[in-house]
Amino acid sequence: MTAVTADTQEAYQAAFDAAVAADERIEPRDWMPEAYRATLVRQIAQHAHSEIIGMQPEANWITRAPSLRRKAILMAKVQDEAGHGLYLYSAAETLGTGRDELLDKLHTGRQKYSSIFNYPTLTWADVGAIGWLVDGAAITNQVPLCRCSYGPYARAMVRICKEESFHQRQGYESLLALSRGTPEQHAMAQDAVNRWWWPSLMMFGPPDDESSHSEQSMAWKIKRHSNDELRQRFVDICVPQAEALGLSLPDPDLRWNEERGHYDFGPIDWTEFWDVLKGNGPCNEQRITQRRRAHEDGAWVREAAAAYAAKHGEATA
């Protein structure tokens, strides 16, 4: 190994900058600034963790799904989420970290997951509302990531977005069935939308003037649009969808602004957002406890697999 001199460091940086400027993909073996690597590890890991923790609020309804068709759809969705978690951990691993290490950081609270999953699923309609709003917000966030400068992440997002948009349509269709069902079903759907609307808007992160990572991430082309831009795009998409569903959105300030060509909407309760992010949401404790317990209860199974592999000369996973 030869020491990297200041000159070669500069040359690497210049090559990296040029590649990003030319919209080329950065690949695992390419040189990259340490801060770029660290940001990606943080973001991809957080994304993977969100898929894994996000299984819980929906899995909560698998055993109570009201028809066999809905049960099959929900099981397939939760299974897809585990799969998305696996893609994303693999993408993170190309940056020189390991899944075990990342899971450990999740379990010890050193890495976060999307705060939306700290809200409880209280009725069956929540499953539909999550599909429509939460997956809808995720897609709005994630489609631009398909063009993210880091190749493995961008490619994972292409696969994930295809499956996510399928889930979103199914969620919407499920809410539609409720909305057009009995008065009780309609009320259940409206109640779920009332509870999930604002948390979904919070999924885009803090307002642009308070978003600490945004500027750098946009310069690196990890991020393509600002939080507020994406949030606006999401609102604009949702309003006509809510109308088609026959459900209202719980915002008295929501109205079309002819001048801007966008919907205006009311203020977000950022106190609640920061509170949930800090661990004080309705389900933070429960979600992480369940995840930790699954991991700890499964330790003997993973040890058995490793011992068997060692005895029989297999490569361990």
Binding site: I62, V78, G85, H295
Partner: peptide
């Protein structure tokens, strides 16, 4: 289906 979210390793989910 009761295992969802409780499996010992993600591959088993």
């Amino acid at each position: 289906g009761e295992w969802a979210g409780h499996a010992p390793v993600l591959e088993e989910e």
